[in-house]
Nucleic acid binder design. Sequence first.
DNA 1: TTGACAGGCAAGCATTCACTTGCCTAACGT
DNA 2: ACGTTAGGCAAGTGAATGCTTGCCTGTCAA
Lengths: 106, 106
Amino acid sequence: MGDLFKALADPTRRIILDELTDRNGQTLFELCARLATRHQLGSSRQAISQHLDVLETAGLVETRREGRYKFHYINTSPLEPIVERWLRKPGKVTGDAGDTEGKGPA
Amino acid sequence: MGDLFKALADPTRRIILDELTDRNGQTLFELCARLATRHQLGSSRQAISQHLDVLETAGLVETRREGRYKFHYINTSPLEPIVERWLRKPGKVTGDAGDTEGKGPA
DNA sequence: TTGACAGGCAAGCATTCACTTGCCTAACGT
DNA sequence: ACGTTAGGCAAGTGAATGCTTGCCTGTCAA
């Protein structure tokens, strides 16, 4: 769950999602080129690749291999439960017991 | 904008939002007690205070002083534009030009 | 088969982040 | 006035994060 928010916390990754929204199914190199051209992002190929890994771990990007190409597709479904979590009316905390992620005390 | 996602990226801060959803207008000490009791979070007072600062910077928490008490109120309005950003249909990237946050190239 | 292309793996580095520690200010109660 | 309570400020520490560097594995065209 926290992977989703951590993925969204980086501006470069948000721009990657923008780019995939504009044109879905891009390869790594295509993304590099378009991020540099349209967003003035000088990130290296490896940097973008690592960002894509983070986004994929968060479930925001899915991939499809085809020969030596790897296409990246945006998946917005993990975003939908975000707002609803804190939009429920005050009264009872329901399903957050598993959200500590090992950040608890020793 | 990125402040919002960074604020949500931490599990302790998400639990604080849960706690404020359950009971709005808590003081710092009240939050400390309830986080420890109901969520087994052993965070110190200063840690919680810093988390509240982050949440307030992100616009997710607003405060009201009253004597020596400071009450914290959740504000969910910054959450609403989150999903819509990437739910627009592919075709044109519109308003992301200001999202680089100084992470751009030299 | 050889070389170019698309991508992956892993170590190293600098910054940021969460948290602690220690001390301080301001508002109450008695 | 004095002590207690609620909260704030700032420096320091360990871990995580974003990025680079260097090399390696597959895939395709000629």
